[in-house]
Design a protein around this nucleic acid. Structure first.
Lengths: 249, 249
DNA sequence: CGTTGGATTGAGTCAACTCAAGGATCGTGG
DNA sequence: CCACGATCCTTGAGTTGACTCAATCCAACG
């Protein structure tokens, strides 16, 4: 586990492959609260930011890196329910001293700002806009969860994988506004893609193989290259209209 | 569609089967905003409260009845992502004039309070606590979505169905605090259970048949009877500890 | 009592899974 | 700079859970 951190970097090394002349969205642009009200914390890839069963008294605001939100079943089956990118808010309590029903694992080295519940509550009093911004973020999370759920429940393996890659690609791209990147590093193994799509890694591998042979996408050792965006959109079963709006965002 | 409304009632007719001497949580207890700031609206079962693609300028706060939140794929595949019960907030915009990516169908006759975005924004300024309460509700929605997703992605058909029935049962029961109900009306067809679990209705039927034969639950024509709660919890693959806490809530 | 949504059951198929054995790639330490 | 160990990826063969297609059957309502 500890070794992985060295290998993976901070998730920004996609720049090596498709140099983005623009700058990624700055950490401060991702902040829910002003810097002086929060403490920042670094975390190495592979570590849990928080784990299932913990009772957190803080909310986490991701400033840089990738985090996987996951749940576990008793026998070890695992589902990744969300990939958090910079700007995300994680660990919102669902009730007073509730145990977290999901965990959060750093996929890359990560920086989060730690916001104690008390600070959050206080801030919402001084700054009414903040709570509504937070609500907006949470509404988007719910909406993304609904999309992801639809994928898992109703799409074929092929569609699911294509949809996930497309989603990650567009969300990643949104971090470098105005850039045209068709190659990026996704800090995921095929097993993690399986955990996110509800498939086994063996089957993910077969699907990826097929998509590669067809010249649609190439994914290999965490490197993603989109070979044919239009066909990817088609396979993912996304309305082209909608997809284009993602690219413009 | 129009006929369904007459047959189904308002979702409270479970009382006929397992008379609850207590009263259901009153509509006003479900309100996000005080009555005078909102307009209430009635809706007949089978109708959409809002549909996919619409650009809503209001948020809906469910006061009574059941609503299914669903998404559709182009070819008609449907996924029910959430069952909203009284107290739920629906239709939160994910960005400025975004089109709704999911729809909301009344499963029973329904009463909602309609809160224009402008009122919501204004209220958050006067009443800072409201926005945080809203954030809490949304955080719970996200968390439920994550659980549901885990079910669909990683559980077997049998586990999924058991889990859903258990969830609906406990959430329903929570509306009559202190009551002991083991029989209730769930305003769902087997097809809708399939849409929620990512299964076909044929397979849902077989699973329900098995659970009935084994004396665990009996579900037939919208009537749910829990025959063996402990075994249901076991089949659902829920930690008994956690399950018990649901019952106490 | 007829009509119409549901629910049920059987037979056959297939997408995704399991089990199992290599092969490739990466980071490390000699 | 090379060799090693640890992940990670790839591929084959056989199995199975859930699906499709296609009839009925039943319950509720008018």
């Amino acid at each position: 586990m500890s070794k992985r951190s060295k290998r993976r970097g901070d998730g920004y090394d996609g720049e090596k492959w498709a140099p983005a002349t623009g700058l990624p969205r700055s950490a401060d642009a991702c902040r829910l609260l002003p810097r002086y009200r929060t403490g920042d914390r670094k975390l190495v890839a592979g570590r849990d930011l928080f784990s299932i069963g913990e009772t957190n008294t803080s909310v986490f605001n991701l400033l840089s890196g990738w985090v996987a939100i996951y749940t576990l079943l008793e026998d070890g089956r695992r589902q990744i329910v969300h990939f958090a990118l910079p700007g995300a808010v994680m660990g919102m309590p669902t009730s007073k001293d509730a145990q977290a029903s999901h965990g959060a694992e750093a996929l890359t080295d990560v920086i989060v700002s730690v916001i104690p519940d008390t600070v959050l509550a206080a801030s919402s009093r001084d700054d009414p806009g903040m709570a509504m911004r937070l609500a907006g973020t949470l509404a988007r999370d719910t909406s993304m969860a609904y999309d992801h759920m639809t994928s898992i429940g109703r799409r074929t393996a092929r569609e699911r994988v294509a949809h996930l890659l497309l989603e990650l690609f567009t969300r990643y791209r949104a971090q470098w506004p105005g850039e045209r990147i068709e190659e990026m590093t996704i800090p995921l193994t095929q097993e993690q893609i399986g955990d996110a799509t509800g498939l086994t890694y063996v089957h993910v591998n077969r699907v990826l193989g097929a998509l590669r042979k067809e010249g649609i996408v190439h994914f290999h050792y965490r490197r993603l290259r989109i070979l044919d965006p239009d066909r990817l959109i088609e396979v993912a079963g996304v309305d082209p209209q909608t997809a284009m709006s993602w690219f413009q965002r």
